[in-house]
């Protein structure tokens, strides 16, 4: 590769066909309110972590649903589980539990070493 001075870029498209959505399925089963999210961003706006670091609970939901799991794992650690997000959610999504379940799913999955 060195002889060309560049590498073949990886696409940044979400490949829905090949992504692993087992984490999302794990959460859907145990916390059906996860399906009701309409991506309004209320949770992210009120989030302490989100105001101080690059963390968005809204985006995290999307990334879980699309199976962008590497990014989810990175992001999950930042949540302090304070639960303020639940208070503002207009769709009654148990947002805090989604973070808990996501961590659980990664721990249980052989594919992801946590």
């Amino acid at each position: 590769m060195e002889k060309f001075g560049f590498f073949i870029s990886k696409g940044r498209q979400i490949n829905y066909d090949s992504n692993d959505r087992s984490i999302a399925e794990y959460i859907y089963e145990r916390e059906p309110s996860f399906r009701r999210c309409i991506e309004c961003g209320g949770c992210s706006a009120t989030c302490t972590t989100g105001s101080m670091t690059k963390f968005s609970l809204r985006e995290l939901h999307i990334l879980i649903k699309r199976g962008e799991n590497d990014k989810v794992m990175e992001s999950l650690k930042k949540c302090m589980l304070c639960g303020k997000c639940i208070l503002v959610c207009p769709r009654g999504v148990n947002t805090r539990n989604i973070v808990v379940l996501a961590k659980q799913a990664f721990q249980k999955s052989a594919a992801y070493a946590i």
């Binding site: 060309f4 001075g5 560049f6 590498f7 073949i8 870029s9 990886k10 696409g11």
Partner: peptide, 14 residues
Amino acid sequence: VQANRGFSVACSKE
């Protein structure tokens, strides 16, 4: 730009 060629070749590869 040589640094961008990875993008160029990735398009053809796609």
